[in-house]
Design a protein around this nucleic acid. Sequence first.
DNA 1: ACCGTGTATCGAACCGGTTCGATATTTATC
DNA 2: GATAAATATCGAACCGGTTCGATACACGGT
Lengths: 335, 335
Amino acid sequence: MATIRDVARMAEVSVSTVSLAFSSPGRVSARTLEKVRSAASQVGYVADPLAQSLARGRSRMIGFVVGNVGNPFFGDIRRELENYALEHEHFVLITDSSGKTERERALVEHLIGLKIAGLALAPSSFGPDYVDFISSIKVPMVCFDQKVAGIERDFVGSNNFLAGAMLTEHLLQLGHRRIAFIAGPKHMHTASERHRGFVETMVSAGIEVNPNYVVDGQFTRSAGYEAAMRLLIQPERPTAIIGANNAVALAALQAMQELGFSCPDDISLAMIDNVQWSSVITPRITMVVQDTVQLGNIIARRLLHRMTSPEAVHEPAQDFVLAPRFVPGTSCRRV
Amino acid sequence: MATIRDVARMAEVSVSTVSLAFSSPGRVSARTLEKVRSAASQVGYVADPLAQSLARGRSRMIGFVVGNVGNPFFGDIRRELENYALEHEHFVLITDSSGKTERERALVEHLIGLKIAGLALAPSSFGPDYVDFISSIKVPMVCFDQKVAGIERDFVGSNNFLAGAMLTEHLLQLGHRRIAFIAGPKHMHTASERHRGFVETMVSAGIEVNPNYVVDGQFTRSAGYEAAMRLLIQPERPTAIIGANNAVALAALQAMQELGFSCPDDISLAMIDNVQWSSVITPRITMVVQDTVQLGNIIARRLLHRMTSPEAVHEPAQDFVLAPRFVPGTSCRRV
DNA sequence: ACCGTGTATCGAACCGGTTCGATATTTATC
DNA sequence: GATAAATATCGAACCGGTTCGATACACGGT
């Protein structure tokens, strides 16, 4: 590995001049610039990013921390961020917390140790300790997906209230009255908003929400399965089920299939968030999806802005909330 | 941020002693060790990983490079590697090449610049240039998934010939003779082996492979869809289709559904590799799956071994090939 | 009392860059 | 042609650690 001193020797200039020639070519005479460049290519010099980061106190890397890298929702966002970062000569380090707060914290601290230039984080927790931790992060950052009360950071996400309300309204329009809701963890903003969208839409329509029709699916497949089973074994079954996310909805579909119910003939089903192969799942689930590409794009732009614009430090945190989109399927029938 | 010099000052010892106290506590007197430790915790000292990597010429990070982080196949492997690495105080940097060789190369070079201690790579290409590039990598590494001819590195993967043969044999046993195969890119080892498994099993059974029944699906959804359509519009349709991977198989299912064919009544379907929600897809596709957890485990162990064991440098490259597992579904009927 | 051995600690050089203030050189101004 | 201003280059200090060879000291054996 050639070092900057090799280049300096070869070009017969000082080390600092070589450094200058690369970091701000304008401050060096044309002749010197040429000498340095040819010397560099002769010895095959490439600056060591580690040494640069150490000296500068900041690298050209962006940290991306989510609970499940495999989730296509995060995948789309990641791709957008990667592309945008690449255009600006930055590099995305992806990490996966498996949804564990402990690990998320360790990852974030590690990334900060790496002197990342920016951080895109999908928060995995909540509460005072967590808020304190996030607030203590001094690296430019953007939070997304999960809005956490008390965190004063840029946030990019979808209108989850609307997502819940849209599906509810759709089912109401189809004549459903006994609508069940498989909810997510109460403390999560996305989950509570989606739930609120369901409840308020029902109430607005003058329909009382049956407490037995609201079950907790934890946003996970296994809990969703159990929750769906509880719904299905009730004597007065719901005529429609809304899954607060894709995992619980598909778990419900599985439960229905296993018990011999037909969807949508016996029970209608709708969900929030897409899955990868939704188009080959029978029936095609009616859903409300987030505009992941747009979300990723906003995250990327906002983060790069915070990172590169000097006055951005003083800009107050801002929320970017996108409307979700309704995608009709064949899983909801008129009653 | 407290530095090592702050600790040295506080503990009234030299900087080198502090360094020694942390890296090899045994070489320092008990009294000094205690002084250093308490001084460190008083000033809140944490070693800067960047400076350490620069000085040591190696970090405690492992690079993980695949073509699609969102693919659950890679997800399982990643998780295994992460857990194992964490147990050994290493940290996995995930990167996604989107299957593009150019980007993969840039990522690998960047990671090497970061002085990663090891590299787990799912090769995205082949050919002399590519082999040269991989061979030039001096960091301890393990390749997986795709075996590339000419690369002398540890390799971990599945027996793809067997995977293709197993599904073919299964369909033969069910009485199928007109079996079609949606293949992957010919130059990819996994694809060619699966194809070979199909062809040789057919030949062994004394059945001639109809050239019209072997179409190229490129392992992608869109090409798979087109390939499936070509199969379905033939006057003498196949009675069964094998998808060389999950994407082309599900694309075929979609094509069948759209044209109004019933699976398995009209056409049977089988595939290699699972997908996330396979259990809610109707019919449940008969498949051969790879033991991703086991693969990930072997990759992790082998890589860490290469990284940490001094004599490992001289060990020749080794192949680890696992047998795939047959998972019956409801997508293949007897004819 | 003398010497050899081992252990604890230290200073200095190093990893490979950046950056600031000082100096040398060129250009512009009158 | 003298002087001021602008430009180009450099040396040295620094980022925060590691590591090697040297030194100082304690201990046991004779």
